[in-house]
Write a protein that binds this DNA or RNA. Sequence first.
DNA 1: TTATTACATTGCAATATTACGATTAAATAA
DNA 2: TTATTTAATCGTAATATTGCAATGTAATAA
Lengths: 110, 110
Amino acid sequence: MGLAKTEIFTDEQNQIALFAKVFGHPARVAILQYLFKLNTCICGDLVEEIGLAQPTISQHLKELKNLGLIKGNVEGTSVCYCIDHDNWSKMKETMQNFLDQDISGQGDCC
Amino acid sequence: MGLAKTEIFTDEQNQIALFAKVFGHPARVAILQYLFKLNTCICGDLVEEIGLAQPTISQHLKELKNLGLIKGNVEGTSVCYCIDHDNWSKMKETMQNFLDQDISGQGDCC
DNA sequence: TTATTACATTGCAATATTACGATTAAATAA
DNA sequence: TTATTTAATCGTAATATTGCAATGTAATAA
């Protein structure tokens, strides 16, 4: 298979999984950390900063863009990518709700 | 390939990615939510609750166990799985640090 | 002992992901 | 126009993931 049966899960469960999936590769984590640090960037920087080939970085950027976590503006021959703070906040709320489930926990049962 | 080049990333980046990866499937999200709700469980429950075959559930439970997020005790012929609250807290701190990067953000650049 | 019950493991097919060389596209520079 | 620069896309190889039928294992029940 290799294909998740998304139809049997709730929208919330699928959305958490989608967000988590995009963070499930260290290159994308590194790209986001770098974008937060610089508050601006171009793809070329990332190729040197991260240490993966240009097509690979471009592919990772595309996935981040598809989820809306970053956005890019063409500036001459280069592209300026940066965090989409609005969408980041929305994602953060969803993920934090999921992570905070344990606040009602009474301790381990076994 | 299909193989992440983990050696070029920091331990933190790799760890965030590992945690995120395990949340990157709705079945594992659903399993964790169910465990939080019940505060105890056995695998059989999950097969009915989630709607995937028993070997599939067992496999997802194994991944959650490998990361230390759940633990299981044999009880007769069944197994009692539950959240490992200590490890969940540690994971939560790591993930929240990552999600909270935007607090210093000055707004979108593009 | 011989079921039965509950879960784990194995093996496999279908699909997804990761990475990169080669190429393309689009903007600027000469 | 013809480079050059920068990033996207295409094609492909290697590996990983998902899901399940079949089987194995270990504890209890008959």
